[in-house]
Amino acid sequence: MLTLISDDWAAVWLTLKLASTTTAILMVIGTPIAWWLARTRSGFKGLVGAVVALPLVLPPTVLGFYLLIALGPHGPVGQITQALGLGVLPFTFPGLVVASVFYSLPFVVQPLQQAFEAIGARPLEVAATLRASPWDAFFSVALPLARPGFITAAILGFAHTVGEFGVVLMIGGNIPGQTRVVSVQIYDHVEALEYAQAHLLAGGMLLFSFLALFALYTLNARPPKA
């Protein structure tokens, strides 16, 4: 009976940890960005929207290359992290989190933005006439109404981070328990001609990805309330 070896379990656990951390951070920073994008009339809307969407079209190698240079000891971000006594980020778990936040940003911001846009200005105006403060209106009106958007954003952000490979390969350094995620572990099994181990993990990834999307499309397919 073929089973996952401990290295594989470590990779699975690390991947889940990376995806949860990234998703949590993205929900916190993605919500205000999406809110601003949905409501603003500023001329910068197109610019910010384009920057947020960049990871959708950029090859992961571009992101990986720039992150490796920028986060490294001679790079601008690397200089700052070293000055703060944090060391340098490549080859560390926090480094992967930073990379994943960039990489999965559009997958969280865009569903949220669409959800906020769908609410429209009317419910918030009503809330304002009822003397709700803007913060109160946001938390008690906009957030509940945008709930499907939050679910979509969380599932997509999580699943997309789990599916990350190119960026991790470029800045990860393949350290067990730190940066060796499932996608990299599969790659290593294939390189080492361990196809049986690769099949187990790859099959698991296929199943997970399908279930995530299945849940997403089932939730979204519910007929709108009359």
Partner: peptide, 20 residues
């Protein structure tokens, strides 16, 4: 301290970029 390159060229590149 060890970080692993996918192949020997990437290993050299980790040093060249100052990351190791």
């Amino acid at each position: 301290k060890l970080v692993q390159g996918e192949n020997i060229a990437q290993t050299a590149q980790f040093v060249q970029t100052g990351n190791a």
